[in-house]
Nucleic acid binder design. Structure first.
Lengths: 157, 157
DNA sequence: CGGAATCCTTTCCGATACTG
DNA sequence: CAGTATCGGAAAGGATTCCG
């Protein structure tokens, strides 16, 4: 059984990816990059919240995703869940100190993002404009008013 | 046409998500969280690289993903592509100043990740152990030797 | 109320083949 | 060498329903 060069490459590809799984930096990155994590952290930053409160404050998340996000945060020790056995049941979620530390990282990320996005958006406009010129169609570039996302302060230190 | 409470919630869900798209912090997060971005940035941190060099140094990425990662970085003005029209063609990729700045953010993330991962892993072990106790099966928890990922220094300042 | 289970669509991505 | 094009499987995630 002799392998083609392409197949050999795929062997190394698999091995490399397997090793990547164990990199702590990557694991953290995957945690905070799952869409709802930051929003949940931010809401919990202001105090314990019930499940239904979170749903109201983060209406973008479906019930399924909210629950699974919370489960994952709980597993990582970033959030604790308090159960009050009454009828109907009441659950409260609260940040742990570790969770608060992660919040600090997120704020840092936010600072840099807002400082850099103007440059990135400029680059995108130029890039897309160039592409439009090459194809003859001269597509209209959608311009997003800065007020739109500026007012959407879903991450505040 | 009267809507159920559930349907009203879904209206807000869509609107909220549409607004989220324009948040610069989220856009940055999505950029750096796409799996190969950090690895490419790190490789380019040491100097310009050809396409084939990147493939060798980052064997985990398929050719397709490597190209699409590079295209996206190029569009955002984080990387520039130099084409040398010879036979065969030669392309070099190089970080822009903006790209180097992003690299700084990534390093910061890495520092925090390595500092915090021990606590997170401990929390996971406890959490999973508890779950195993509840179900009678007492599943064996896979223990990953720290040396494994410790040696995998794919992010170095 | 807080969730788990199911179904079903959409998106991502690897594999493969082809081009200048 | 450095891509592009296309296909199919796997996985993420939304909608809906049911349960304690």
């Amino acid at each position: 059984m002799n392998l083609t060069a392409e197949q050999k490459h795929q062997r190394r590809q698999a091995a490399y990816n397997a090793a990547l799984e164990h990199c702590p930096a990557r694991q953290l990155l995957e945690t905070i990059s799952s869409k709802w994590v930051t929003l949940v952290l931010l809401e919990l930053a202001e105090g314990p919240r019930r499940h239904s409160e979170l749903r109201r404050r983060i209406p973008g998340a479906s019930q399924k995703m909210l629950t699974s996000t919370l489960r994952s945060l709980e597993r990582d020790g970033l959030v604790v869940r308090h159960l009050t056995a009454s009828v109907p049941v009441r659950t409260d979620y609260e940040l742990t100190p570790l969770g608060r530390a992660l919040l600090g990282v997120v704020y840092g990320l936010k600072e840099w993002a807002e400082a850099s996005m103007p440059a990135v958006e400029l680059a995108r406009l130029e890039h897309d404009q160039l592409a439009a010129d090459v194809s003859g169609t001269s597509a209209t570039v959608a311009t997003i008013p800065a007020t739109k996302w500026n007012n959407f302060s879903h991450i505040e230190p």
